[in-house]
Nucleic acid binder design. Structure first.
Lengths: 244, 244
DNA sequence: TTACATTTAAATGTCTGACAATTTGAACGC
DNA sequence: GCGTTCAAATTGTCAGACATTTAAATGTAA
C-alpha cells in the first residue's frame, strides 16, 4: 500500500483510495484489523489527523467499522444488504432530485425494472409477500389517508412485489429505483378517484401473481405505468401555469 | 441544524448526519456554500478536526466538494452520473464479493434487468450504440485475447446494450449490476468454443436490435443467460472437486 | 483609463502534542 | 477458583500553530 508523493491531491483522499483498493482487490479481507492510526500515520509518513480523515471517508462508505479500546481499531466491514440499501437509496434520491430528471424518465425506468422481476415474482411469490401486498392494498383503500401515507404504502406494495422475486440482488438494485421515486410521487395529489384506480391496478397485480400469471401482472403493471404517467403530467402541467 | 448532546455516537458522525439531512431535505441547495470549518466548529461546539472528519465523510459520498483559498470552502455538490456510477459499482461489487452471492442468483438478476431494457433498446437504439456493440463483438472474435480482456469487452457490450435504451436512470441502475458481475465472470475460463457461442449470441442480439425486434433480442438474451449459467456451473463444479 | 504586478485576507490542508473515554487482558487478593 | 483492580492500547476529541492556495483588493506604470 503506497501513495504517490508527487500527487497534489489531498493526502487523506489518497490514503483512503489506497486502503479502498486493498479492500476491493482482496488484499484486506473481511473482519481483518487494519494497523492502528499511529501505525498507519507512520507507514504513510503523515500525521494522525490525516489518517483519521482517510478512515472516516472509508467509514462513510461502510467499508470499515471502528472499535475503541484495547485491541480495538479499524476492521474491514462486511457490507450488509441494509447498509447497501441505505447508500443506494441516498444516492438514487439525490441523483433524481439534483439533476432535473423528468417524471417520465424516472417512471419509465422504475416500471421497466419492476416488469423485469414480475416473471420471477409470479413463479415464486410466497403467502407472506402476497399478504404484505394485500395489507398495503387495504391500507390504500382507507379514506382519510394523507397523500404522503398513501405514497409510502405504494412504495411498500411495490417493494413487496420486488421481494416476491426472491432474488436479493434484484431487491437491492430495485430498492433504490423504487424508493428514490417517492419524493417525485409525493408531489402528486391523489384524489379519491385516482386512489381507487390505483388500488384497482394493485389488486389486479396481486391477483395475477397469486394465480402465477406473469403476463397478466405485467399487463396490469404497464397500465399502471400509463396511468401514473398521466397523473404526473397533469401535475407538471398545473405547475407550468401557476396563474390558474 | 442541531445535534443531540446526549448521543454517545461519534460527534463527527452526528454532524455529518445533520448536514446530510439538510442536503437531502433541500435546506441546503446545490452549489450553496457551507459555513467555514471554523464557523461550523463554533456552531456545533466542537473542534475543527472533528468538523473536518464530518466533512470528509460527506465528501466520500460526493455530497460536498471543497475548494481551497479565499472564498473557498465546502459546497453542496451536484451528484453527477459518473460519480453515482462509481459509488454504485463499488458498492455492488463489494456486496457480491463479500456475501457469498451465488453465481446463479447474480446471473439471474443481471439478465432480468437487461431484458427489462431490451424493449426500449430495440425501439431507440442509435447507429452509435449499434456501432459500439459491433466493435466489441469484433474484438471478442480476435484470437489471443486474454480471459480478462474478453470479460471486459463483454461488459462493454452489455453496457452499450443498456445505454441503447436511452434512459439515463436505467443506465445508472444497471451499471452496478453489470459491472459488479465482472469479478465473478473473470473466474470463468473462456475456451475458443464458448467464445464462439457467446459471440454468436451477441451477434443475434445486435441484429435483432438493429431490426427493432425486441422479442428476438430477448430470446437471444435468455439463451445467453442459460449458456452463461452452464459455464458458471461447470466452473463451480470443478472448484468443488479440486482433486481432478 | 487600462493592463499588469503585488499584496492581503480568508479558507482549507497538515502537523504536533496533549488529554479523555473505552475496552481488554492480566495481575492481584480473597 | 473467582471477583476486583489496574495497566496498556486504541480511538475520540481538543487546542493551537503553520503551510498552502486562491481570489479579491490594491498599487503601479504605460
Amino acid at each position: 500500500m503506497k501513495i504517490d508523493p508527487h500527487n497534489k491531491a489531498d493526502l487523506s483522499a489518497q490514503i483512503a483510495g489506497a486502503i479502498r483498493d486493498a479492500i476491493v482487490s482482496g488484499k484486506l479481507i473481511v473482519d481483518e484489523r487494519l494497523p492502528s492510526e499511529a501505525e498507519l500515520a507512520d507507514h504513510f509518513s503523515v500525521s494522525r489527523p490525516t489518517v483519521r480523515e482517510a478512515l472516516k471517508r472509508l467509514a462513510a462508505q461502510s467499508l470499515i467499522r471502528t472499535q475503541r479500546g484495547a485491541f480495538g481499531g479499524a476492521f474491514v466491514n462486511r457490507l450488509s444488504y441494509p447498509e447497501a440499501y441505505g447508500q443506494q437509496i441516498t444516492t438514487a434520491t439525490l441523483l433524481l432530485s439534483m439533476n432535473a430528471i423528468s417524471f417520465d424518465v424516472a417512471c419509465e425506468a422504475r416500471y421497466a425494472l419492476e416488469r423485469a422481476c414480475t416473471p420471477l415474482a409470479a413463479e415464486r411469490r410466497t403467502p407472506d409477500t402476497l399478504a404484505t401486498m394485500r395489507a398495503e392494498i387495504h391500507r390504500q383503500a382507507q379514506p382519510g389517508l394523507t397523500d404522503e401515507a398513501f405514497c409510502a404504502s405504494d412504495v411498500a406494495f411495490h417493494r413487496a412485489l420486488v421481494d416476491s422475486a426472491g432474488n436479493p440482488v434484484l431487491s437491492y438494485q430495485l430498492a433504490g429505483a423504487v424508493e428514490a421515486m417517492q419524493p417525485l410521487m409525493n408531489m402528486i395529489t391523489f384524489t379519491a378517484r385516482s386512489r381507487g384506480a390505483i388500488v384497482g391496478f394493485h389488486t389486479r397485480i396481486a391477483d395475477a401473481l397469486e394465480r402465477h400469471e406473469a403476463e397478466a401482472a405485467q399487463a396490469a403493471l404497464s397500465e399502471l405505468e400509463a396511468y401514473t404517467l398521466t397523473l404526473g403530467r397533469d401535475v407538471m402541467a398545473a405547475r407550468a401555469r401557476p396563474k390558474a
